[in-house]
Write a protein that binds this DNA or RNA. Structure first.
Lengths: 249, 249
DNA sequence: TCATTTTGTTAGAGTTCTCTAACGATGTTC
DNA sequence: GAACATCGTTAGAGAACTCTAACAAAATGA
């Protein structure tokens, strides 16, 4: 009669995903998350948060006992990272490709992040990988009379800026992340994996143009510990081999 | 004490928008819409539809008296077209740019159409206008090893196909739709308007690559009647002047 | 330490969307 | 025209999510 604490709900509701995301960000930023902070961030009443926390706790996504500090479980962190990665990816698209202001792009991403399918995400990442090796595209759009126009609010110069990076990209040789030594920093250019392995890496937050710091690397078959978007992740050898990067600083 | 039948609700709920969309499509396809058909199309029970119709009716979007045929008001049609246009635009993006199958692209569009902001829509249309004059982009993506791959389901060949069109586009002179005579057909290449006028045209369903049939054109300041996506629309002169097309057949 | 403020919880209620079940109303068939 | 099927409506209920109001617990400060 235990309510299924081990069962991953087929799909979570949007509000619940938002709470998870909020908690993740608060913990990352301040080291802790309180009911009050969550309520403020999501613009709801504390009472509502309280109830939602119970649900998340029952779903095994949040570690929470009444009036204690709030933390995500392993599963909860994974779920939060999954949403946040979608958020980042969509924001980049609206900002860098379509030329929207960071704020507007973020808003739009917020509204869509819950419904981006795995396939669409996969394809969108491929699109960014492509942009990284074909600098002409965004550049051309940026210069196109219909692209970002002078009168537009916060043009954010995505076109030219991105393309400077891309041109570099293109010239520099890329390598597998597994070649990096602890302490080195690199920027993802491509994920060569396909299928579930690719999806797994994407959901962890490994997207093109993401910075990766290598923290520890064991010999041979041991996992490679990296830091990515503020999160510490363990990559199996097979996973690390699929991540192409260019070195950065 | 009349419940505000003239007030446009600031924003409609997603289900209500879906009902509107469904009714619009049913009327367009079969000439009429019954509760049963709507229920089937949306995969809900008739009872639910019945209740929703009352709401839509109270909002002044649907013409409906108990047990009679169901039709959209002027306002309802506008709202439905607005959503459908977003649907079409997003579908095109996922299908033609990202290379998803028509079915998957449609699904994804369904989930996002309710939250696409005016600005994002505007920018996305510009992106398509840009693609129409810079054929290299989608083409290049299609040929890129990371693009649509041999093993993929329903590649739909968007890359090459679209670009053949684009190349033509590019070479042919475009003209304003107001130059067309009744009976002529053309394909939209660009909407040169900006601001509210542009938004109005987009919401009517006037997107790049949309086919337009001219039905009636009055002299001088009279409106131009066109058919677009199955809908008959009246364009004011100022509006027609902003629509660039290439002639087709 | 006692009063005050801040923080979190519970109780109760409202909204929206959905369902099933029962019931009218309309139409069809023999 | 009676029996049957189809279609639409209403009634009643439940799931999510939210709110306000009242209360409990903890922290702060004089």
């Amino acid at each position: 009669m235990f309510p299924a604490a081990n069962t991953v709900p087929a799909s979570m509701s949007e509000p619940l995903e938002d709470y998870l995301e909020t908690i993740y960000l608060l913990v990352q930023e301040h080291g802790f998350a309180r009911v009050r902070d969550i309520a403020k961030a999501r613009d709801v009443r504390a009472a509502t948060v309280s109830i939602s926390l119970r649900k998340l706790s029952e779903a095994g996504l949040v570690n929470y006992v009444r009036r204690e500090y709030i933390g995500l479980t392993e599963k909860g962190e994974e779920a939060a990272r999954r949403i946040l990665t979608r958020h980042r990816l969509l924001t980049r698209f609206f900002q860098e490709v379509l030329g929207m202001s960071p704020h507007a792009a973020g808003q739009q991403a917020c509204a869509m992040e819950h419904s981006l399918t795995d396939e669409a995400m996969d394809r969108m990442v491929r699109f960014f990988e492509f942009l990284g090796t074909c600098p002409s595209v965004v550049q051309a759009f940026g210069q196109c009379p219909m692209g970002v126009r002078p009168g537009d609010e916060a043009p954010c110069g995505a076109g030219s800026e991105t393309c400077a990076k891309c041109a570099l990209n293109h010239k520099e040789a890329s390598m597998s992340v597994s070649r990096l030594k602890p302490g080195q920093r690199a920027v993802v250019t491509q994920i060569t994996a396909t299928g579930p392995l690719r999806q797994r890496l994407l959901d962890m937050g490994i997207l093109p143009e993401t910075t990766i710091d290598v923290e520890r690397s064991g010999p041979g078959g041991h996992p490679l510990w990296i830091r990515c978007q503020g999160a510490q992740l363990a990559l199996r050898r097979a996973e690390a081999d699929c991540i192409r990067v260019r070195q950065a600083s």
